[in-house]
Design a binder for these strands. Structure first.
Length: 553
RNA sequence: UGCCCGAUAGUAUAAGGGUAGUACAACUGAUUUUGGUUCAGUAUGUCUUGGUUCGAAUCCAGGUCGGGCAACCA
């Protein structure tokens, strides 16, 4: 008996609509504006919209809400399509609000004919003035009572390009005293002599969001139009247009957008980070964009799992970025092959080791027997991690220290005999003895050690660059922190290790390969890699209870 | 001061009149050739005041607190 998973409030609505017979099947849509790259907040919406259709046997359209030519671009269209596909979703149809410009224009004509829209010559300042305030009713525009004929003529003249930007707008005629500000004769068309990324210079008037979104939903027979909370006050308008235009009654439902600790989640801010070069582009691995997370090594499975776990509700939320990292680790632990890489090398000489060296074996992934084994060369001179040694070790320190023993992973137990320093007192190498009977797999030494270290053979090591990322912001709630969000940027969010030493089995060929660098974290190949130099991104660290212990003191 | 949303452990999210549960985070311990993984366990919660009811997180009323709404943005 598997436990029935509880439904979120939107699934409940869908199930009710299906069981009441209101709909036989559902149609949803994911409606990005192509003016920026998608971020993890969009992933939540994508998983919701596509997830609903998948679960209830419906379909989802990808619709670009491209009604503002000034900010939009095909570069964004392409990136958005890539990201949605990468996340693992297939849209039924690729649509554009701009596909409907002619139809939308006709809708506007219909409204004018019904005396529900008028051309207004007021300046934008005057219109803002007329709107009133939330607590104060607005006032009518002096152009509100133009005749249908005059409105028709003027609106067509607007389309024909007879006016300059801002000279005239088309407004819905509703109620300037309405308690909902959005119902106070909202602007539905404005003049913009601008090149549109798809329609070129075909149009010089463009519909506003409120006059495009709901109608586009209706045209596509969207049954459940899911959006975020800030559109709640728009719903009245959404419904009003559908009713007046007598078109398919799509319904809008709102859920709370995703906020995440140590992260900004607005296209405007992300754009600013890119433009002002606080990061290296939209796909910088520190960015909360889908493309950034992809480059960093997060998997689509992990992101989908995350979206599933955070749930859907209507209250504002701030999700711990740690949950995302948990999902990433959880997936990577199962699929990543293990390799040993030393970031900050300290030479170890095995004084009693004779011969040219030998080949040892180690498992590629202890979580997955099918992942097989690999060969690792072992020799007299090795590198270990500098902070895996302490001259004066505290209690409970299981790593190397003078006189102390540790196991080298998949190799032998060694004991530290002597610490070699240079003139400045800097430790340059460790002289150790190895225990021949302690070889992994055939250990007859009877020695038990608490610590196991990763290592590489000095002679066989391969150099690689490793990029370590930390959170981009220093404060938890960036959105509500004092001052400008850029004041809180973590200037130490990128650390580059240009000469890490890797075992020779680390010959990455694709960023689809996921690695766990033993005791270090999960890594993937970066696109900056060349034949001469491999570059790895740290996707996420391993959980580190020892570091926590040290911190506690 | 108008209209609209919301309020359950630290953070999220369930329970739809009948035992407040789950996950992450935290903390104990066990296992471990990764101080990883896994496993076992602990602590912490219904905004408030009334009402309805045998019984309220849930229904009703008042309050409090938080958020949104006055772009020719979406």
């Amino acid at each position: 008996m598997s436990e029935e998973k509880s439904l979120n409030f939107i699934e409940e609505i869908v199930e009710a609509d299906l069981s009441s017979g209101k709909y036989q099947s559902i149609v949803t849509r994911f409606p990005p504006e192509p003016n920026g790259y998608l971020h993890i907040g969009h992933a939540k919406s994508i998983c919701l919209n596509f997830g609903l259709a998948n679960k209830y046997g419906g379909k989802t359209n990808l619709r670009f809400d491209d009604t503002n030519p000034v900010t939009e671009d095909t570069e964004y269209v392409e990136s958005i399509k890539d990201d949605v596909r990468w996340l693992g979703f297939n849209w039924a149809e690729e649509r554009y609000a701009s596909d409907y410009f002619e139809q939308l224009f006709d809708f506007a004509i219909k409204l004018i004919e019904k005396e529900l829209a008028y051309v207004d010559d007021s300046t934008s300042e005057a219109i803002a003035q007329q709107k009133g305030t939330p607590t104060q009713a607005g006032t009518n525009s002096p152009f509100r009572d133009r005749s249908v004929a005059e409105n028709l003529e003027l609106f067509k003249a607007m389309r024909a390009g007879q006016f300059k930007d801002g000279e005239k707008v088309l407004r819905a005629k509703i109620d300037m005293a309405h308690p909902n500000m959005h119902m106070r004769d909202p602007i539905i068309y404005r003049i913009k002599h601008a090149q549109h990324h798809r329609t070129g210079d075909q149009w010089c008037i463009y519909p506003m969001y409120d006059f495009a979104h709901g109608q586009s939903d209706a045209i596509e027979n969207i049954t459940h139009s899911v959006c975020t909370l800030e559109f709640i006050p728009h719903r009245a308008l959404y419904d009003w247009f559908i009713e007046q235009l007598e078109i398919f009654p799509s319904k809008q439902y709102e859920f709370a957008r995703l906020n995440m600790t140590y992260t900004v989640m607005s296209k405007r801010k992300l754009l600013q980070l890119v433009n002002e070069q606080h990061v290296n582009g939209w796909d910088d691995p520190r960015m909360s964009t889908i493309s950034g997370m992809r480059r960093r090594g997060y998997t689509a499975e992990a992101i989908r799992e995350f979206c599933d776990r955070i749930g859907i509700a209507k209250r504002d939320n701030l999700i711990d970025v740690g949950l995302l990292e948990f999902c990433v680790r959880e997936h990577l632990n199962k699929i990543a092959v293990r390799r040993m890489v030393v970031f900050d090398p300290l030479k170890v000489v095995l004084t009693n080791y004779e011969g040219d060296g030998e080949i040892l074996w180690s498992e590629n992934n202890p979580e997955d027997q099918n992942a097989g084994n690999r060969q690792i060369p072992f020799s007299k001179e090795l590198y270990i991690e500098r902070d895996d040694f302490m001259e004066v070790a505290p209690k409970k320190y299981f790593r190397l220290a003078p006189g102390q023993m540790v196991r080298l992973k998949s190799a032998y137990i060694i004991r530290c005999d002597e610490v070699i320093k240079d003139a400045s007192g800097m430790i340059t190498e460790l002289h150790c003895t190895y225990i021949p009977e302690s070889k992994s797999g055939s250990d007859t030494s009877g020695i038990n050690v608490k610590g196991t270290l990763h290592w590489v053979s000095a002679r066989h090591a391969v150099k690689a660059e490793v990029r370590l990322y930390d959170r981009l912001f220093k404060v938890e709630d960036v959105g509500n922190a004092e001052g400008d969000f850029k004041d809180h940027i973590n200037t130490d969010s990128l650390e580059v290790i240009s000469n890490a030493y890797a075992e020779p089995a680390l010959v990455a060929d694709s960023s689809d390969n996921r690695y766990q660098f033993l005791r270090k974290g999960y890594f993937c190949l970066d696109k900056d890699s060349t034949a001469e130099k491999l570059v790895f991104n740290r996707t996420v660290t391993l959980k580190d209870t020892w570091a926590k212990e040290v911190k506690k003191g």
